[in-house]
Design a protein around this nucleic acid. Structure first.
Length: 551
RNA sequence: GCGGGCGUAGUUCAAUGGUAGAACGGCAGCCUUCCAAGCUGCACACGAGGGUUCGAUUCCCUUCGCCCGCUCCA
C-alpha cells in the first residue's frame, strides 16, 4: 500500500522520538501495550518544562488562581454525579454479516424496540432486531464498552468495592471546591488549576500519543458569578468583542467575556511556547455538538500531519484544548448528589440586590428561576419538585447566594507535547563539497520548552586545558538550567546531535577562550541552533545572556 | 471489537527451510583549531508462544504491537 505523505511524516517523527529518547512505547520489551507511552530522557524534560510553564502561567503568575493536586481514585459517587457512570458505558453489537458496528441502545430505539438489561448488568437485544446496514438479524450480543478503567479498593473484589481511575481531572476540583474556597481566601471570580493523570479505555487509541489510554491533563476550573448576579451588582453585563483579547478582567464580566478571555489567554500561552497562530485552528462547537449543560465551547486545534483536510485542502487540526462555558452544571450536580451546599455567599450581591427597583429584582429572579428549573428538569427532576427547588434557588440569589458558573480551559499535556514535537520537526538537506547531499533533522523547539537549554563543548577533546575549562563552564551554568556536556567526536558532529534534540544554544570552548588572542581571553563561541550563526560572549555574561532567552 | 496490510540491530533496509548482512547511529581508542571528516576496534536484531519439520527468522496457528479503513471519542 502506498503510504501517504502525512503518514510518512508521522513515521519519521515517531522514529526520531525513539532514536533520541523522547517517547518510547510502554512495556516495549514485552511487545508493548496498546495506548500507553513512556517519555524518555528528552521527553521527560520537555514535558516537565511544559507543565511547569502551564502551572506558572495559570497559577503563580496570577492572583486569582490556586492549585490542587487530587487523587486519581476517588469515591465512585463522584462519577455518578458527573454523569460518567451512565454516559461512559455504551453497549455495542456487531453485525455478523456486514460487520457493521452499532450502538445497541440506538439500534433498538430506531426500530421501536427496547434494549433489556438483566440484574447483572448484562445487555441483550430483543428478538428480531435488525442490522440497519444489511437487514440481517445475525447480531452479536451487546457488549458494554466501558470507557472508565475499573478497579477494586481493598482486598475484596466485589461490586461494593468498585472504583474508577478518573477519566478527567476536573471532577476533583469540583468536589474540593468548598474546601479550596474556605482555605485559600479567594472570592469568586477565581480558579482552581490542576495537572494530573487521567485514564480512558479508548476503543481505538490512534495517532501515536494523541489518543492514549493514560494521559495527563492540565485543567483550570474558573468560577464566576452568574450573569444575573453581575447584572444586579453592575447594572448590566459587559459586552466584549467576539474576536481578540478582551483585556484585563473586569468586575462586570459575564460568562461570555470570561470565555472569550480564557480562549485568548490560552492562545497567548501556545504562542509563548512556539506554536504560532497559523499552526493552530479553532472549532466553535455548534448547538448540536454542545453538551446540554454547556453554553459554549471553543476548541483550540493544532494542525498535526495526520489531521484531516477540509474542502480547500487545508489541514483542519486536532483538539489540543477545549475551553468550555459549563454553566453551574458541575457544582449543581455535586450539590444534588452529595447533599452538601455548593453555593457561595456574596455580600456585594446582597447589598446591591436590596437597592434594585422591584421590577429589576423580579426580572432577575425570574431569569435565575427559569435557568435553575431548566437544569433540574433536564436532569429528570419532576416538574413540581423542580419548580420548588428553583424557587428556593432564586430566593437564595436575592439574599446573595448562588452556585458559581464555570469556565473550563482543559488541555491535554501529551497532545501538546506531540504538537510541540511535530511543530519543531524540521528537515534540511545539506550538500557537501563533493556534491553528496544528506538530510539533517533539527528540532526547532522554543528555548522555553527545549529539553536541553545549552550544550557546553570543548573544541577538542585531547587538549586537557580545553576540557578543564569546558567543565568549569558547565558547572557554572548547571545550577541555573539544563546543561549538557559533550566532548566526543568532531565539533560538527556534536552540533548536529544537539540540533536533533533541539538544543537552542551551543557554547564552545576554544583556544581563544584560553587566551590565544589575549583580548578574547575568557570568551566563548555561542552558536545558534536555527541558523548556525556564531558570536563571542564573555563567560562572565554567559549565564544572564542565556537566562533571558530561555525564560 | 471487525476487515486489510505489516513486524529482521537504536534507526532505515537486505537475505535465507540449514540460526542472519549493510548503511547510518552508539560505545572505546587514536586523530581532529567550528558544523554528522578520517582510521582501528567493540556491542547490538529475526516481537512472543505453539505447531509442522531431522532442522523454522522463513510455512501454519494463536497472541502482542504498529499502520490503514470501519466503529468509538462523554
Amino acid at each position: 500500500m502506498a503510504e501517504s505523505k502525512e503518514n510518512l511524516q508521522m513515521e519519521k517523527i515517531v522514529s526520531l522520538c525513539k532514536r533520541r529518547g523522547f517517547i518510547y512505547q510502554s512495556s516495549e520489551i514485552y511487545s508493548g501495550i496498546n495506548g500507553f507511552w513512556d517519555y524518555g530522557p528528552m521527553g521527560a524534560e520537555l514535558k516537565r518544562n511544559v507543565k511547569e510553564l502551564w502551572w506558572n502561567t495559570m497559577t503563580r503568575e496570577r492572583e486569582d488562581v490556586v492549585g490542587l493536586d487530587a487523587t486519581i481514585i476517588m469515591s465512585p459517587a463522584i462519577w455518578k454525579a458527573s454523569g460518567h457512570v451512565d454516559t461512559f458505558s455504551d453497549p455495542m453489537c456487531d453485525c455478523k454479516k456486514c460487520k457493521k458496528r452499532h450502538r445497541a441502545d440506538q439500534l433498538c430505539e430506531e426500530q421501536g424496540l427496547t434494549l433489556s438489561k438483566d440484574a447483572n448488568g448484562k445487555f441483550s437485544l430483543p428478538a428480531g432486531t435488525k442490522c440497519t446496514g444489511c437487514g440481517s438479524t445475525e447480531l452479536t450480543e451487546p457488549r458494554p464498552f466501558n470507557l472508565m478503567f475499573k478497579t477494586y479498593v481493598g482486598p475484596v473484589e466485589s461490586e461494593d468495592n468498585v472504583a474508577y481511575l478518573r477519566p478527567e481531572t476536573a471532577q476533583a476540583i469540583f468536589a474540593q471546591f468548598k474546601n479550596v474556597l474556605e482555605t485559600s481566601r479567594q472570592k469568586v471570580p477565581f480558579g482552581i488549576a490542576q495537572i494530573g493523570k487521567a485514564f480512558r479505555n479508548e476503543v481505538t487509541p490512534r495517532n501515536f500519543t494523541f489518543r492514549s489510554r493514560e494521559f495527563e491533563q492540565m485543567e483550570l476550573e474558573f468560577f464566576i458569578k452568574p450573569d444575573e448576579a453581575i447584572e444586579a451588582i453592575h447594572g448590566s453585563v459587559a459586552t466584549v468583542p467576539t474576536t481578540g483579547h478582551p483585556g484585563e478582567p473586569q468586575p462586570n464580566w459575564g460568562w461570555q467575556a470570561w470565555h472569550q478571555y480564557w480562549v485568548e489567554e490560552r492562545v497567548r500561552f501556545y504562542e509563548s511556547i512556539g506554536l504560532s497562530r497559523d499552526t493552530l485552528g479553532f472549532h466553535i462547537q455548534t448547538a448540536e455538538e454542545l453538551a446540554h449543560y454547556a453554553r459554549a465551547t471553543t476548541d483550540i486545534l493544532f494542525k498535526f500531519p495526520f489531521s484531516k483536510r477540509d474542502e480547500n485542502g487545508e489541514l483542519k487540526g486536532e483538539e489540543l484544548e477545549g475551553i468550555a462555558a459549563r454553566s453551574d452544571f458541575d457544582l449543581s450536580q455535586h450539590q444534588r448528589f452529595s447533599g452538601k451546599p455548593m453555593g457561595v455567599f456574596d455580600e456585594e450581591l446582597r447589598t446591591a440586590w436590596g437597592k434594585l427597583p422591584k421590577e429589576k429584582q423580579d426580572e432577575l429572579w425570574r431569569r435565575y428561576y427559569e435557568n435553575r428549573k431548566k437544569y433540574l428538569t433536564k436532569m429528570g427532576v419532576a416538574e413540581e419538585a423542580a419548580a420548588k427547588q428553583a424557587t428556593e434557588d432564586a430566593n437564595g440569589l436575592a439574599k446573595g447566594q448562588y452556585i458559581p458558573h464555570v469556565i473550563e480551559p482543559s488541555a491535554g499535556a501529551d497532545r501538546l507535547i506531540l504538537a510541540l514535537i511535530a511543530n519543531a520537526y524540521t528537515e534540511t538537506t545539506k550538500t557537501d563539497d563533493k556534491g553528496k547531499s544528506e538530510t539533517l533533522v533539527m528540532m526547532k523547539f522554543h528555548p522555553r520548552v527545549a529539553p536541553i537549554k545549552v550544550a557546553v563543548l570543548p573544541l577538542l577533546k585531547n587538549k586537557p586545558e580545553l576540557v578543564k575549562k569546558a567543565l568549569a563552564v558547565r558547572d557554572l551554568l548547571r545550577p541555573w538550567m539544563n546543561v549538557f556536556y559533550d566532548d566526543s567526536g568532531s565539533i560538527g558532529r556534536r552540533y548536529a546531535r544537539q540540533d536533533e534534540i533541539g538544543t537552542p544554544f551551543c557554547v564552545t570552548i576554544d583556544f581563544d577562550t584560553l587566551g590565544e588572542k589575549p583580548e578574547l581571553l575568557d570568551t566563548v563561541t555561542l552558536r545558534y541552533r536555527d541558523d548556525g550563526k556564531q558570536e563571542r560572549l564573555k563567560i562572565s555574561e554567559l549565564r544572564d545572556w542565556l537566562l533571558t532567552r530561555i525564560r
